[in-house]
Amino acid sequence: MKPAPLTPQEIVEHFRSTFGEGIEEAVIRERTEGVKKLPNYNIWITVRQDLLKPAIQTLIDISFPHLAVISGVDIAEQIELLYTFTIYFGVKHGEYTLTIKILVPKSDPRVPTISDLMPGAVFTEREKQEMLGIEVVGIPDPRRLFLPDDFPEGIYPWRKDEKGIPESMIKNLWEVKRPKDRPAPPLPEKPSTKECSMECADPLEPKTPAKEVKKE
């Protein structure tokens, strides 16, 4: 039923022949690890923004891929979105990762949803909306994912520009001191400090039985 798996070069060729000029860049990286040095392949394909869905459809036609995640990077005037797929899983040592990259201008940060092709994409698309300020057109569930509901509008943690996290929002947990606005402890300070000083003097001293004797 299934045709023989394509090699990484054949996959890139297939994309190039399908989209021609639409493929801006295609790189195959090979890496070897372990003693036997079996190679694993990572394919990176940059496509024109409007070709995102046709490119994913082409991939689905080759073999149904697994969408690992959509990553995003803020690069100056544009946002780079990386749709990382893995393809040919289940073939021993035959799986490749394939990343489809598109560049989205910040002036019009809109991408179509791919959840109609890959139902599992909703989650990661929701995350890109809140983290990078991208609008995913047609997303079935546009709510926030990780950020709290009262998180300020127009601030996106992964942005490197003025829409990123402002200094004022950063809390340095290490410099928080013991709060002063606490009510007094429910017990008078005296016995507790006494016990504390005892404790500090000799932590190994079994003091609880001693207390028992005192109590009785």
Partner: peptide, 29 residues
């Protein structure tokens, strides 16, 4: 289609295990 991974996927019959599919660390050997 929901792109699940690991034992959850394998229990549904999807043969997907990075250790087998994608040689890395010592798993290729």
């Amino acid at each position: 289609h929901l792109c699940v991974v690991g034992p959850t996927a394998r229990a549904s019959g999807v043969r997907k295990d990075v250790r087998v599919d994608y040689p890395y660390c010592a798993y290729g050997d």
